[in-house]
């Protein structure tokens, strides 16, 4: 009799713990989601790691003026900007890394990036379909305060480096 009532009590306690844990898991996931989106890696470190992997002579460093010229944004408004484009006008290759100061800057940048890619696909699709294909397969990743874009045949490699870093 006593054993049975103990079992019932244990069963209830276990059940309560179980539902509390479901709640904790949901809260934890929300926390992780927010935390990973604000993870802080110094821009210099991220820039250095990516720069080391871009050993293509055909890529031109346009970090200081590229963002204004191609996207219409001021570099000074962000914590860091790194931009490489191909020095060949027939190539759509481009690598962009931006660290924003504030999360609210992300949306406008993302929209501008997607718009530019869309426009460039239209530009390239008739005379350089392979470049249009590269643009279609562009890697766009937003992670924490970082925005990463790679239009390149090595986009997968750059993406891997970027993800490993963060």
């Amino acid at each position: 009799m006593r054993k049975e009532s103990n079992d019932v009590l244990n069963s209830r306690m276990t059940c309560i713990c179980k539902y509390f844990l479901i709640l904790f898991i949901v809260l934890y996931i929300i926390f992780v989601y927010s935390y990973t989106s604000t993870k802080d890696v110094p821009f210099d470190k991220a820039e250095k790691a990516l720069k080391n992997s871009i050993n293509d002579e055909n890529m031109l460093d346009v970090s200081s003026r590229g963002l204004k010229r191609y996207y219409g944004f001021n570099t000074a408004e962000y914590e860091g900007v790194m931009m490489y484009i191909s020095n060949n006008g027939m190539s759509a290759e481009e690598i962009l890394l931006i660290k924003v100061n504030d999360d609210t800057q992300i949306n406008e940048l993302e929209e501008a990036i997607r718009q530019r890619i869309k426009n460039r696909i239209n530009d390239f699709k008739n005379y350089a379909p392979d470049q249009a294909e590269l643009l279609k397969n562009a890697e766009i990743i937003i992670k924490g305060k970082y925005i990463f874009v790679a239009v390149s045949k090595n986009a997968g490699t750059y993406k891997k480096i970027f993800l490993q870093l963060l």
Partner: peptide, 26 residues
């Protein structure tokens, strides 16, 4: 280190679920 919390929660959840299922079998 961030995902260690997920694993610990998963362990606790499954531990209590195992007990819960065991008790309720009756």
């Amino acid at each position: 280190p961030i995902y260690i919390g997920l694993m610990i929660l998963s362990i606790l959840f499954n531990y209590f679920c195992g007990k819960d299922i065991y008790y309720k079998k009756k």
